[in-house]
Each structure stands twice: as structure tokens, then as C-alpha cells.
Computed example of a mutant assay.
Amino acid sequence: MLDEFAIPRDLVDRRVTRMRVLSPSNLAADFSRALPPGAHIPMLRREVLDSFLRRRAADAGATLVPGLVTSLSLPADPTADPYLVHYISSDSGSPSSSSSRSVLEVDAVVGADGANSRVAREVGAGDYTTAIAFQERIRLPDEAMSYYDDLAEMYVGGDVSPDFYAWVFPKCDHVAVGTGTVAAKPDIKKLQSGIRARAGGKIAGGRVIKVEAHPIPEHPRPRRVVGRVALVGDAAGYVTRCSGEGIYFAAKSGRLCGQAMADEWKLTGAVTEAGIRAGYLRRWDDEFRLTFRFLDMLQRVFYGGNAGREALVEMCADEHVQRRTFESYLHKRMAAVEPWGDLRLLWRTAATMVRCGVLGREVERLRRLEQQAADQVLLRH
């Protein structure tokens, strides 16, 4: 992402070269043995990255308007009339500054306003399921912080999340300790206590400097382009399951969408729904649909219970799994097929799942579903 979006290296807080995944029984898999030479996972703070991107947009000619969007008036003629963006403006963007209600007249709208997107609601883009991500930023004693200098840890288990993972990620002068869930949102603080207990002495003596909670979409919205309004990033639902990554896909979708609108404007002097769909939506789906579906399948298989999580961590110790994962993660697309290596991986996966009791459970579940379907057919006749 740094190279693709020209992000300065001095914005990076930490360069992670060691990754560790810990199972419910605390079996640890070193997930960084297959990391390519010189490669690393950059860790940035969102507030630092967002500030840089705003400044760069202004330097490129964008007009920044601090404020809060309250509603969107749709045009009487969806092909020609402007949209009216109603917002509360302020000079500094802070709640304490003086503010006033204003209206902005625009030809097209890009909704990049997060999982609780006001733009999505105004155009009827439809709902989606969301998870909650909760984390504490914890400043550690120097010795403890040095342990996480270039190390990221991921924990799986019902004690930290029933359907996702928990993490300890290094940041500038602190670590981010958190967890996420869809199925157990009311228990998020209990799950947070679980990751603090699992990390144990490694974060002992730390001081909480900030607490954060955010909704995370679980799948794309039913409608991502409505008229001359397009949704990108979390507003569109572009967060991968299994890994929970969203920042790259937010930046990528924003660039594809903006470029599609700019290209059509240069050619025709207008922006249309058909043009946005062709230049943005189809390109996005062609490039990333398979990745999102594959990671959704992995989450369903491996995050459903502790047996599956034990199998997942056991597989993470396999160098072929690690190499294929990094090929996909670093390049943000499914790695090319390697017939023999992938066939061996398939057999190893099946063996691991049998050993951990996952495959038998899934086969039994499918057998029950088939029997229920057959019983319903008999009832109808």
C-alpha cells in the first residue's frame, strides 16, 4: 500500500517482521518464516494517516470543508439536477467551535463516511451486518515495549472472540490490544478482558491511554451505486472477513471510484450511474470478489469453534500456507494456483481438520441439512 498510494515511510510507526498466532490452548505458530526478504507489515496510526491524506488532497487542489453531513437531498431529475448536501460546518471541525448550517450543490457524491454511513441511508443502499471492534491503546514499560518492537500477535479462542480473533499490535510508543465480534457484541468488554488475560505478563504494568470502538461491516451493501452516488470503503462494506482488513480496500475503492468519475467527466462533461458502474463497480468486483468470498469461507470453517481454531493455528505453522498467504496479502489478490503444492495443502488441511474434529462435525451438519430437506419434500407430497 505504501508504494501504490505514495505514503511516506516516515509515517510508519513500526515495521512488523514477526507474526505469532496463538490457539485456544496457547499453541503458538510463528507466521513469519516465509515472509519475503525485506518485506514487512507497516503499522500506522489512523489519525496520522488521515491527517496526511487531507493535507495532500488540499495541496492537490481539493477544498476541505470541516463539518458534519446531516442529510442529502436527491435530485428531481436523477440524470441532470444536482444533489444537495446539507451539513453543519465549522471553522476548525471541532464541536466547540462556532458552527452553521450550510448546503453544498454537487454533481456526484462519493460516500466514504464509514460503516454508519449517512450517505448510504439517504440513498437507500440497504443494510448489512456489522461487527464491533474494541481496542485499548496501552503504553507499556520500556522492557515490555521492546518485546513488541517488530512483533504482532493474534489470539483465537472462545475466551477472546466467538467468531473472530484478538490482537496485540505494536504502534508508535504503545500497543493496541483489542478484539472483535459479530455474535457477542454485548459481551465485548468480557472478551476484552479475555485478551488482556491471554496476553498476561507481556502487557503487565501498562497504562491505558485511549479506548476505541468501531463498527466493522461483514459484507458489501446490497447497493453500492445509486444514481450518481457511489459508496466506497467501509460505507460500501469493503472489509475482508477472516483478517478484518479494510484500510487498503478503502483507499483502493476510493481511487477507482474517483478515477471513473473523472474519466467520464473528461470525455462527456457529465457523470452518470452507468459510467460509475462500468468504471468503478465492475472493475472492483472483477478484481476483488473472489478474494472476499474466499476469506468469508475461511472464517466460516475455522472460526466457528475452538476445534477449528486449533486446526487453523496448526495450519499456520506450514511454510506453504505462510508463503501463499503473504503472496495474497502483500499483493492484495489471490495467489496464482500451484497444482501440486495446493493439492498437498488440501490433503494436509483435511488431515488437520479430522485430527481436530472439525471435518467430522461439518460432514454431520451437512448430513442433517440434507435429511431435513428430504423430510420437507416428503411432507409436501
Rank of each mutant, 00 (worst) to 15 (best):
D81Q: 14
V48I: 11
P66I: 01
D50L: 07
D81Y: 10
V48W: 02
M43A: 10
R45D: 11
P82N: 10
R45P: 00
V69K: 11
R46L: 04
R46G: 04
V69N: 12
R55W: 03
T79R: 15
S71P: 03
V48G: 00
T70C: 12
A60H: 05
V65E: 13
P82Q: 06
A80L: 12
L72N: 12
R56G: 00
L72Q: 13
S51E: 10
P75R: 06
M43Q: 11
P75S: 05
I41G: 06
E47H: 13
S73Y: 08
R45V: 10
L72T: 11
D77W: 01
D77N: 11
R55V: 14
G67W: 02
G61L: 02
S51V: 00
R56K: 01
D50N: 10
R46T: 08
P78Q: 10
F52D: 04
S73H: 05
A60E: 06
L64P: 11
S73K: 14
P82S: 11
V48N: 07
R54F: 08
D59F: 01
R46I: 01
D59A: 08
L74M: 13
A57T: 06
A57I: 09
D77P: 05
L68G: 00
S71V: 07
E47C: 09
A76Q: 09
D77C: 01
D81M: 11
L49T: 01
D59I: 00
R56M: 07
G61R: 03
L53F: 09
A76T: 15
R56D: 03
A80D: 13
D50S: 14
L44A: 02
D59S: 05
A60C: 01
L49V: 01
T63A: 11
A80T: 13
V65R: 15
L74I: 06
A57K: 02
D59T: 03
T63K: 13
P82A: 05
L44Q: 03
L72G: 09
P66L: 04
R54Y: 11
R54C: 04
P66Y: 02
A58D: 04
L72P: 11
P75I: 02
A58F: 05
D50F: 07
L53R: 06
P66S: 02
M43V: 13
A60G: 02
A57G: 08
R56W: 00
P66K: 01
D81F: 14
L64Y: 11
A58P: 02
I41S: 06
L53P: 04
P42C: 08
G67S: 10
P66E: 03
A76C: 05
R56F: 00
A57P: 07
P42Q: 01
I41H: 12
V48M: 02
S51T: 06
